[in-house]
Write a protein that binds this DNA or RNA. Sequence first.
DNA 1: ATGGTTGCTTAGCAA
Length: 255
Amino acid sequence: MKIATWNVNSIRARLPRVLAWLEAARPDAACLQELKCTDEAFPRAEIEAAGYRAAVFGQKTYNGVALLARTEPTDVVRGLDDGVEDPQSRVLAGTVAGVRVVCVYAPNGQEVGAPAYGYKLDWFRRLRGYLDRRHRPEEKLVVCGDFNIAPEARDVYNPAALEGQVLCSQPERDALANLCAFGLADTFRKHHAEAGLYSWWDYRMLGFPKNHGLRIDHLLATPPMLAACTAAGIDREARKGKQPSDHAPVTADFS
DNA sequence: ATGGTTGCTTAGCAA
């Protein structure tokens, strides 16, 4: 079973590339983030013509997440379900082939100390609470998406300049570590230890050609899923060429 | 300190 996560930065702007990628990568489950469209505007017919069913939690202009699979995801849950009034569509869970898949688009945070940064830290606490309420680490569970956090210096192209900045600050890393303390581990680091492997590159300043990137998109897995994880990767090819997303797809294979 | 690029929406915000 192959599971993938990709921040597409607008599903409508990226649709041709998403369809081509689905056909080439053929994931069994695909978590998409930053749809930037409502449920009604989601290109469901085109996705279904490509052989995928979609559970969608959309939002006008910003955010929006989807879970694609060969058959309709079951027991779909939208949002964090914690009673907090939150208009931002960032979490969608569904079951695919016996695996619980939680698709997340974590807040960016904008800048250390900004209101959005506080929202981000609180959102990670809420996500941990969601897992505590609804799941157990013994389950077959993956939590994947754009976490907007580079876990370590080796995930950052210029640690000297960026450590302590947003996406690389200690409070954010602590928030991610607290999430993983539920019982989640990074599938990518099971298979790759080296620095310089990124999943996002800024559109500006020739970020991708210079490999000025960050590894902020992750596929986290509970122990039974981590044990079954046979490979992990980042599809840099999907970041190349005309009109790419600023993120590359991240994948993991499970036996 | 600023700017640079993209998408959505149409001047400004978010990333």
